[in-house]
Amino acid sequence: MSTIVSVKNLYKNFKEIKAVNDLSFSVEQGQIYGFLGQNGAGKSTTIRMLLTLIKPTSGVIEIFGLNLQKHRKEVLRQIGAIIERPDLYKYLTALENLRIFAAMSGVKVSEKKLLDQLAMVGLAERAHSKVKTYSQGMKQRLGIATALVHDPQLVILDEPTNGLDPQGIADVRNLILQLSKEMNKTLLISSHLLSEVELIADSMIIIDKGEKIVEGKVNDLFDPAETIIELKTIDDESMYEKLTQSSLESFVHGKRNDCILLKLHRQQVPDAIKQLVNMDVPILSFHSKHSLEDYFLSLTTGSQHVEALKN
């Protein structure tokens, strides 16, 4: 497997603001690479640097083994991208949009192939409709079609499910998997929703305030058997104290949003409930959360949690 994207010590400052701070990561061929972070974490800035929309303050970006600054055209020819919203020419039809972006990518695509492309994203029947008549989901799919029209090796999708309804999200997810599995594309997908990325990504990076928090294979980053419990009690303050001094102490993971967090294996859950009842803890609610989502939240909302997890 060769490295498709290699980012080393990337910095971007907007005046005093450090949008990206010493970021390094790499994407291997054929991967679906998740790029995670809260809004404003620096995802879009990084992606825009990968696409030459923004000039890095310093650092090196290599794509397909080529220096991006020096081989801009060559590299971009092999990349398809959607950045944030899939904004297209609303006064033109889907087919016209597709034709324009194919030509701008430097490839001549036959009418039939363009229609095939639209069929792939389920828009064949609306090929001749103006984009302004499209729903958000259709626009997103058309955006993906324009990103793919020149058959790029690397596809970069920035928040591809933003603003979509559940069906739209599912459609896009399936499309991404299809691109990876059937067409062997390398995909870099950014999102602020972990649930979205975890379902499809092979590897991922989580960034916060422009810095890398963690990078690795999704399977390595968390144990699927692990779960986080959000416990709501009548008096969280004193109950937190009580728990930290009890036999459950080793499971207490912190506090968030007026909840006490417990981290434990799935098999330990029934036992923990039993103990809580025995301790007369006045439980209002007991939610089992998916661990990766919580992992993500904890990483990006408070450094104490980050530190805790790193240990």
């Binding site: 030459t52 929309l53 055209k73 060559e74 020819r77 991208a81 904004d87």
Partner: peptide, 14 residues
């Protein structure tokens, strides 16, 4: 304004 500039600038055009 349309958002198409960023798309155009990701194309292999100087």
């Amino acid at each position: 304004n349309m958002g198409t500039l960023r798309l155009a600038m990701t194309k292999p055009i100087s």
